[in-house]
């Protein structure tokens, strides 16, 4: 296991290097001049020139990359051209928000998706299965921004139970924080729950048809034990992979949901940065989320070991 882990860790370094190169290169392909966007309405040529020099935009591509990656290696992700704050501070400011939203959404997805998948597989081709499938289809095909606006209209405008948007840090007021986060977390979790449900269902159906499950049943084990202890454990392997990918995606920010609920997370940060050609912010956030994504995949691989004893040999 140690050898495997160190091999995987070794891969992380070149992967991150290529990611950094890719982010930087792709960003340069965006049309438009950041200095021009930053010069605002007045477009004074001397201001444009000053900004170009200040942010090394007048340097050739490899030099600019070296400036950036040199800073990154020293823990400096650069500075937002738009609001003049260090990117590292912005990332640290948004991280707890996005992480909380991701965890809550993921929990909601797990709580709905896995039980629904199990029920749907066990009660295959019954009304339970059809109902779960219909709900999953609805969850998959409902656009987040639309569901978000409908939920705001229902719970905030009509019923007045929850705030329409706005984020309150948990340290300030935990109840208000949860009130503000529950709707966006549900919107995000809803879509992932549908995917989870579909995957759990198909994995479970496959596992339930295998010999060892029949043997377990023949031994006279209770149906609950057969399903939860024997079948589900094996069926979870692909679901864990999927979970890690989905969670990684959640950590990179949920653009539309964050826009609708005005949650100040990575999604909003990165979209605004792209539109304003705030290169340092885009690079910093993408590099950070890419690192998080890679780490999560590594953790998923470790989780395989834990749920599947065969891999350990």
């Amino acid at each position: 296991m140690l050898a495997y882990l160190s091999r995987r860790l070794l891969f992380v370094v070149p992967t991150l290097f290529f990611v950094s190169l890719l982010i930087f290169t792709l960003q340069q392909l965006l049309p438009g001049d950041p200095a021009q966007v930053m010069a605002g309405e007045d477009q004074r040529p001397e201001v444009i020139e000053y900004l170009r020099a200040k942010y090394h935009l007048d340097q050739p591509f490899p030099i600019r990359y070296l400036y950036w990656i040199g800073g990154v290696l020293q823990g400096d992700l650069g500075e937002s051209i738009r609001i003049g704050r260090p990117v590292r501070d912005l990332v640290l400011e948004k991280l707890p928000v996005t992480a909380q939203l991701a965890v809550m959404a993921f929990l909601i997805a797990l709580l709905i998706g896995i039980p629904a998948g199990i029920v749907s597989a066990v009660k295959n081709n019954t009304v339970w299965d059809y109902a779960a499938n219909a709900v999953a289809l609805w969850g998959l095909s409902t656009p987040n921004f639309w569901l978000g606006i409908l939920l705001i209209l229902l719970f905030s405008v009509e019923l007045g139970w929850l705030p329409a948007s706005g984020y309150v840090p948990p340290g300030e007021d935990l109840a208000a924080n949860l009130e503000a986060m529950i709707l966006p977390a549900f919107v995000l979790g809803n879509a992932i729950a549908a995917v989870m449900m579909r995957h759990t269902r198909s994995a479970m159906i496959q596992v339930l048809g295998q010999d060892y499950v029949r043997t377990a049943r023949a031994k006279g084990l209770g149906e609950r034990v057969v399903i939860v202890k024997h079948a589900l454990r094996n069926a979870l392997v692909p679901v864990v992979t999927l979970g890690a990918l989905e969670f990684g995606q959640l950590l990179s920010g949920a653009v539309l949901t964050e826009q609708v609920f005005t949650i100040p997370g990575f999604g909003k940060l990165i979209v605004d940065a792209v539109f304003n050609r705030d290169y340092a912010v885009v690079q910093g956030v993408v590099l950070f989320t890419a690192t998080a994504y890679i780490t999560l995949n590594l953790l998923a691989d470790i989780a395989y070991f834990l749920v599947n004893p065969r891999l350990r040999s």
């Binding site: 606006i149 705001i152 209209l153 905030s156 405008v157 007045g160 705030p163 329409a164 948007s165 706005g166 826009q259 609708v260 609920f261 005005t262």
Partner: peptide
């Protein structure tokens, strides 16, 4: 001051008292 770029969401916030 709360920046809410989507006009519909801004309006929903006004209507809900936020």
């Amino acid at each position: 001051y709360m920046p809410i770029p989507d006009a519909t969401v801004r309006l929903a916030n006004l209507r809900s008292g936020s």
